[in-house]
């Protein structure tokens, strides 16, 4: 399988094949590319970023770890239905264990409270 590594802007062109012992990967400039290709072949994952609606603002959020790519639309549904009603600081968890595997949705900017939040 031909892949483009998305772990950094270098965007290495990888080729990955399933072998008896696991996965053989070539084209990666660094070990992150190998890990990425292995995951792509077995269970692709992505960090999901979106926004959560709050009073008078959209608050940018992210999952604090990669979630299964196959779950992204289901997770988006939950995020789109959520409403934020209290102040949060950057990094605060807004939705806990959203994927049933431990990934939390955290604020990637502060909302309310701090005067110089973005």
């Amino acid at each position: 399988m031909e892949l483009v590594c998305i772990e950094c802007p270098r965007g290495c062109l990888l080729s990955a094949e399933k072998t008896e012992g696991g996965v053989s990967v070539s084209g990666n400039f660094c070990p992150k590319g190998r890990a990425y290709a292995e995951a792509e072949i077995t269970e692709p994952r992505r960090v999901l970023t979106s926004t959560i609606r709050a009073a008078g603002a959209m608050v940018p959020v992210r999952t604090d770890r990669p979630v299964k790519k196959s779950m992204i639309f289901a997770l988006m549904k939950k995020i789109r239905a959520a409403r934020l009603t209290h102040a949060v600081a950057i990094g605060d968890t807004i939705m806990e264990n959203i994927d049933g595997e431990g990934a939390n949705v955290v604020a990637s900017a502060s909302y309310g409270g701090e005067p110089c939040s973005i």
């Binding site: 940018p60 990637s108 900017a109 973005i118």
Partner: peptide, 13 residues
């Protein structure tokens, strides 16, 4: 680190 835009800005702010 793999940051979002607002997180990157926050570091400098």
């Amino acid at each position: 680190e793999n940051l979002t835009g607002p997180e990157y800005a926050h570091k400098f702010i």
